Computed example of a mutant assay.
Amino acid sequence: MNDAAASRNATASRPPGTAGNAGPSPTRRALGWVLRLGGIALAALLLYLTISRTDADLSGVLRSASPWPLLIALALLGATHFLGAYRWIALLRVQGVHIGYGLSLKLTIVGHFFCSVVPGAASGDLLKMGYVLKYSQGRGTEAVLSIIIDRILGLAGLIVIGTAASAYMLVRHRALVFAQPLLALTIVIIFAGAVGLAVLYAVLLFRAQLMRWRPCAALTGWAARRLPTAIVAIFSKLATGLDLYRAQPIALLNALGISVVVHFILGVALFCIGRACLEEHMAFIHYLLSTQISNVSALIPLTPGGIGMRDAVTAALFTAFDATPANVVGSIPVINSLLTLCWAAVGAAILTLSPHFRNRQL
């Protein structure tokens, strides 16, 4: 019995993701590498098509580009990670989990690196989930919930900015919207996302009333009787965590405000790149709308960090907005991706050089 207890204690003391000596099977490892390499290959292909189909002169544009706007854009892209780290800390505090800003920033930037090499935005979130469990003080489910809410609020910020920019386009450039199927479809998706988020918030706000509604109560009771006790306990913790957010709407609004600022900054960064590349025709609103629409397309988990997909969509929108001269149409989005990868390289450096990460401890 003592040996069994010691074994349980040893297992519990291991960092997340190191339980036992069993690792991923060779088949899973091979499949993981196929997905990674396939996503990277697709991103490279899309980047090549973006450059070739727009007659982009990437090297020439970079040689003639003004360096200061590019440096400002690089700094702005980095600022979004600093703001994102602060937003996550604020959401964790609502759940009674406290970590330092340095740790949050480190996990955020390393998570950005993983998003840049593994298709799908959730890859960085999984890293954060694994490590934050060590600091959750028995509130692991609530800590994981904070990451999910953080991701939802990030999407909400994108939709808020995208909705405002889309409304402007419909008022000022309606003919252009209806002449470009891609632009029109994406605006519809943004508006649908806005409705979906409003419904989600209404469910959070009126969850107690919904649970007293007879069909919901019957469904909840049926699930509680059928599901394993551990799963029911997890859902119960999640519901309690959601109630904490519902009880502190100011914290949610502040986090949403940070998300809006983040996505606005991304639009400013793209605008700076455009000015560095001496683009002459597009207004700031076109850059802002292009950023939100391309980031919506990047949510599809086909390429790492949406690289390639985001560039292709941005180039298509720049063509619709008559970006001038023509050789910057494909160059600006690719330069934006290169600057984004600079911060991914920072995350790779932290992952490689930090002994805490090498030991899977922070």
Score class of each variant (00 low, 15 high):
Q137W: 03
Q292M: 10
M169C: 06
V328H: 08
L176G: 12
T314W: 00
R139G: 03
R246G: 13
L77Q: 10
A121G: 10
I335Q: 07
I285V: 12
L317S: 07
Y287I: 07
A10Y: 01
F321N: 09
R246F: 04
I250V: 12
G130H: 00
V97P: 13
R139D: 06
A283V: 15
L133G: 11
I273R: 06
S136P: 10
W222Q: 04
T319C: 00
R246K: 10
G60Q: 06
C342L: 12
H281I: 07
A217Q: 14
T18L: 14
N2R: 01
F178D: 14
A4F: 03
F82L: 15
L353Q: 10
R28D: 14
A224W: 01
A316V: 06
P67Q: 04
A73M: 05
R358N: 14
F357V: 12
G120L: 03
G257N: 06
A323Q: 06
A179E: 15
R87K: 14
V117E: 02
T186D: 06
P181H: 09
T240K: 01
A269N: 07
A348Y: 08
D311H: 00
L341Y: 15
F206K: 13
P119S: 00
P304Q: 04
L227G: 02
G193I: 12
P26V: 07
G124K: 00
F114L: 08
V329H: 05
L242M: 10
P15Q: 04
P249M: 00
P228N: 07
I300Y: 02
L299I: 11
A79E: 07
A90L: 12
N9I: 07
F284Y: 14
D3E: 10
V328S: 11
R139V: 07
R275I: 15
A6F: 11
T220H: 12
L205T: 14
M1V: 00
G124C: 02
G257L: 06
V94P: 15
Y86D: 09
V188E: 12
L83E: 05
Q248W: 05
V171R: 09
L103W: 08
G257W: 04
V268A: 09
V110E: 08
G306R: 01
L42I: 12
G154E: 01
A208W: 08
N336H: 13
L252Q: 03
A312N: 05
G100T: 10
G96Q: 03
T319M: 00
G17N: 08
L155R: 02
A194N: 09
A315F: 04
H112I: 03
L299R: 00
G130I: 03
P67W: 01
L341A: 09
N295V: 06
V260A: 02
E280W: 03
A251N: 10
L74E: 07
L126F: 03
R174M: 09
W213K: 08
Y135H: 15
L205S: 15
H81I: 00
E279K: 01
R174Y: 13
R87A: 05
G308N: 03
T18I: 00
H173L: 14
V110P: 10
D243S: 02
I231W: 08
A19P: 02
